[in-house]
Write a protein that binds this DNA or RNA. Structure first.
Lengths: 108, 108
DNA sequence: GAGGTGTGCTACACATATTGTAGCGACCGG
DNA sequence: CCGGTCGCTACAATATGTGTAGCACACCTC
């Protein structure tokens, strides 16, 4: 398996530039969506799955594994998965994305 | 083909919420990267391809088609592909993403 | 007007990633 | 011990992406 720490290769992009790694990870299906769904409350594996159009558990687990390795998401016994501190910072840019989408695609 | 206007289905997510469509589009491989590479200058098809680790022209063309349909990217004869006004607004959130990545993953 | 260069883009066989369903083992309450 | 939940794995089917070759067009220069 690839995709562990930032300095390692992720799907082939080995430039070492953090942004490249990030773009590569976020460019995997469901990754952005997962972060989005965790935006305001921790969710259990199954709840998270439900919110993400019943994404297959295979992929969900894979993504969560990656996100945990990158320290964006944590698992707490009892509550389930939640954003880490770093994850919450990233989240704010997703909120900006949402803002943009709502504004720009209001009519369509 | 799916993936045309915001109100239409994109890879199955038919909630109609703009953010969902956006997350789904950006969650396709290379889409984010393409936007990123266009950040400060227009690029020709081939130049863009070169910057994106020689992504296959099939995919590049597909992404550009989508991005043009969504009015994020435009093609100008002579200069090549460039961000639209809307694209540039979106870009600013990518810059924030970059900032976050540099800050958070400085050491790794 | 033949050859060279550049462009955007398509075709297609091959590889990888994702999906959908089934189900396991661990836990908990009754 | 039974019926519910939980996180998660296995695996075959399908969708998506890759890599190479090459086409049609335009603009040069000779």
């Amino acid at each position: 398996m690839a995709r562990k720490t930032v300095s390692q290769s992720v799907r082939g992009s080995t430039t070492g530039r953090p942004i490249m790694v990030l773009l590569d990870i976020l460019g995997q299906r469901w990754t952005l969506r997962i972060l989005w769904e965790l935006r305001d409350a921790p969710l259990s594996f199954r709840a998270l799955r439900q919110r993400c159009d019943q994404v297959s558990p295979t992929v969900l687990n894979d993504r969560l594994k990656t996100l945990r390795e990158l320290d964006l998401v944590q698992r707490e016994d009892g509550t389930g998965y939640r954003l880490s501190q770093a994850g919450e910072e990233l989240e704010s840019t997703l909120l900006a994305l949402n803002h943009w989408a709502e504004k720009h695609w209001a009519g369509r």
